[in-house]
Design a protein around this nucleic acid. Structure first.
Lengths: 308, 308
DNA sequence: CCCGAGTTGTCAAGAGTTTGTCTATGCATC
DNA sequence: GATGCATAGACAAACTCTTGACAACTCGGG
């Protein structure tokens, strides 16, 4: 079957050091990779996944000695567990390291490097933290650098492309739960930047929502049609760049008119420029990701708790 | 009978050095090229493809010693796939199945389902075939359905978002080879559709190029600056949608002026509308993916083998 | 509050393996 | 005769393996 990869690759893909991988094997029998004739370890995809799960479970506070021999399914459960407050303390530090590594990659216009930095960030921080502590600041700083003239448009484009891909891969990441609430995410017409919308989409996915992501710049009728066809529970709109679009208020009113009762969330830097309309049409404005999460949580709770 | 090519050509086409090719043959029996009467090696297309697969599999972390004698099919799996056209026979059937499953998912606006259909398609068909036989037709049919009114704009947006993410994840898939040729991919200003550019980018990655993907709609000066900073060997531009942009010819001329000698490839549906300019500025126009691959191959061969 | 005992990540040294690259020599081709 | 290819052998750099040791940390008890 799959002949497996070397320990170096296994280490890279799991975020563990080679030393740790060997130690876990020797001391706890956590895995039993096949060997070549000359005793070199060969890791299959399954074993690598197992190592990833072990890693996340240990980071969540479980001690390796206790969980090393558990079945994969059990590990999946342990690894999924959140750490509400006993959160690891050293992570902010790591986030900054990753961020600066990412900025270096951007400056040298090395998209491949940027991607692998971010990829390792996913392993280390997880999606949520990576988004919050790395991707958002990164976008911010690229924007600043561009305005100050230290970075070119091309830098911004290149980074956007990579981030776009990464965030996109977060959106449908988890298999949907049966009765998960549904969130429609898009941007109103004229709002061409989709990164904000993607951040919301991936965050919502992370929080257990089923997300229908529609890309940027969609007309009100389309938004409304999709909202109803998909039995959505909320709508999220990202408003970032053109902060002085005279046609936007009309669009927002049209949306509200088509969806009179829907919970609609608006977020993004440019929301401040449209405060009047936004409150007029009763959109919930979110300043940042944290408040978005809170609002999503509130909407979810407000749903009629049918079962039990 | 296929006469086969010399080891020098084989080295060029695979990106491997002659030494390595010989070493793989001698040490691992990885290939067994036919010989002339005077014992010179002659490589057939199949053998060259095998070498390419081996190269990609090793880049993916598999050690040459373990995989050298594997069958081509197994290699395809390890190398994550590619089949220019001499494909296995049952695949067209599979491709159609996947395509229709994808269309179903689109019609019911279930992005999650679409994503998992495509994901399984990657496993079954590999990146190259999935792109050729599923993604491209899918885009085509969505476009048709939209024009006929059976599908909404929202469908198109939703599908684009999913495909955008999937193609994006293909682009930087492999770790760059030391002396891989570099291709810059983008679209000229005003060309906002990036799917075509992404298809080229992912195809080129598949062929062993190092790709610098810059997203859509980049000004000529930016393109040129990146081209030179990244020591690129070629530039690819996708021209798909506005087929009647009066400013585009000027942009194309500007690009050619900034990069007088660079090999520039233009592809996409709208190229027919700009034929006059395109030939004036000496862009190589590609009708489809296959011809793009051929042109890339030609450019790679034309490179003066400076090193070694 | 301090002390062992157990746990866990990290490291170093020495031996062995893998693999890309290079040389030298002779033949082939043009 | 200049260039390209074949073979064989030699290297060096990069990887891995195993063993043993060490430091930081946790935890229960004195």
């Amino acid at each position: 079957m799959n002949h497996g990869v070397s320990i170096a690759i296994a280490a890279r893909r799991t975020g563990l050091s080679q030393h740790v991988i060997r130690a876990w094997e020797k001391r706890y029998g956590a895995i039993r990779p096949s060997r070549t004739d000359t005793k070199r370890r060969l890791y299959s995809d399954e074993e690598i996944e197992r190592l990833q799960l072990l890693r996340r479970a240990t980071q969540a506070g479980h001690s390796i000695g206790n969980i090393a021999t558990l079945a994969v399914d059990a590990l999946r459960i342990l690894a999924e567990e959140k750490t509400p407050d006993g959160a690891p303390m050293r992570l902010p530090d790591t986030a900054e390291t990753i961020l600066s590594a990412a900025l270096d990659a951007v400056r040298s216009l090395d998209c491949t490097a940027l991607e692998s930095v971010l990829q390792s960030g996913v392993v280390t921080l997880g999606r949520g933290l990576l988004t919050l502590r790395v991707i958002v600041p990164l976008i911010q700083q690229i924007g600043d650098g561009w305005e100050r003239g230290t970075l070119r448009i091309a830098h911004e484009h290149c980074v956007s492309a990579v981030i776009r891909t990464m965030l996109g891969s977060f959106v449908h990441g988890y298999s949907p739960t049966a009765n998960a609430p549904v969130l429609v995410v898009t941007t109103p017409p004229g709002q061409v930047h989709e990164l904000g919308a993607l951040i919301v989409a991936s965050t919502a996915t992370d929080c257990g929502w089923k997300v229908v992501y529609l890309g940027p710049s969609l007309p009100p009728e389309e938004i409304a049609a999709v909202y109803e066809r998909s039995n959505a529970n909320a709508l999220a709109l990202s408003i970032i760049y053109p902060a002085d679009d005279p046609t936007l208020p009309a669009q927002l009113r049209a949306i509200r008119q088509l969806l009179p009762t829907a919970p609609i969330i608006a977020g993004g830097r440019a929301t401040v420029s449209y405060q009047a309309v936004l409150s007029e049409v009763r959109f919930t404005v979110c300043e940042d990701i944290a408040s978005t999460i809170r609002v999503l949580e509130a909407v979810r709770m407000a749903r009629i708790p049918s079962a039990s």
